[in-house]
Amino acid sequence: MKVNRLLKYTAKRIVDLIPTLFLVAVIIFMITRMIPGDPASTMLGPQASVKEINNLREQMGLNEPKLHQFIEYLKDLVHLNVGYSYVYKRPVVDLIMERFPNTIILTLFALVISLVVGVTAGIISAVKKGTWWDYVFTILSLVGVSVPVFWLGIMLVLFFSVELGWFPSTGMGDISLGFSDYFSHLILPGVTLATIPMATFSRITRSSMLEVLEQNYIKTAKAKGLQARWIICKHALKNAMTPILTVLGMQVSSMLGGAVLTETIYSWPGMGRLIVDAINKRDFVVVQGTVLFLALLFVLVNLAIDLLYKVVNPKISLGKVAK
């Protein structure tokens, strides 16, 4: 009965996604066509003549009426075809699939750092409330949520690459050169991207754990045994799971966005750079495809997190969230 309801709910949510994604597709199509400048002249560079530009436009199908282009685009989408890049002369899916793993590695690495460090710092702050540990972590996490990602990236490079020479400043490691090469390339971009979520996790963990710890203040005080105190902490941490999940959902979107800036600073060959390059080259098909892909990813992650809620906290009524 319960599993059945969960499945039904999932199905409904997935169906709900279709109009949202359709709208994303419409919006991104309209925005890209409003961008001044056209791909043909951008591709051909300064030396091209008007005739050459026009020939290329014709080849790219850009001389077709916009409505016609739009209908073609939708038709392709229905067939799950996100198009063919006229700059790379390759299917957009290939371009995405080449870079997507790189972005995912970076994002997941950052997510792991931020969860581990953030939650740990949050727990320490909560348990040692009022001590200098608490103050240090609280101030660091306040600074952490406020720091501009791109500035932090530059500062980390300045210090750890230029000054100390500990980590490479750019590019992705080569796994064939061994794990250490790969990992050392991952550290600076990973830390850069992790900072904001790390700080957010730390704050949310601290506050939701305190809620429980303060309620159980007297019990905590009475619980002389280490084990008893540990049980209360565990209980408090469990209470923190739901808000951490909520924040996780919100962070995925901002991390994908933050990845754009991080990838730009560190020459990381991921989705962010693909999109920024595509915007500069006016490769509309790639812009459309990648943005749609990221939007899909975003809504799916949020759906997954909603579903996780149910597992962590079965008390939440399905009907209410569905609305």
């Binding site: 949202t20 994604l21 709208l23 994303v24 919006i27 991104i28 925005i31 890209t32 961008i35 979107s253 901002s254 994908l256 966005g257 933050g258 754009v260 800036l261 999109i275 920024v276 915007i279 812009v287 943005v291 990221l294 939007a295 975003f298 809504v299």
Partner: peptide
């Protein structure tokens, strides 16, 4: 929902 599904910075860059 559709607007929110764009990563914020990408939306801003495109705009």
């Amino acid at each position: 929902d559709a607007l929110a599904a764009f990563p914020f910075i990408l939306l801003a860059i495109t705009l």
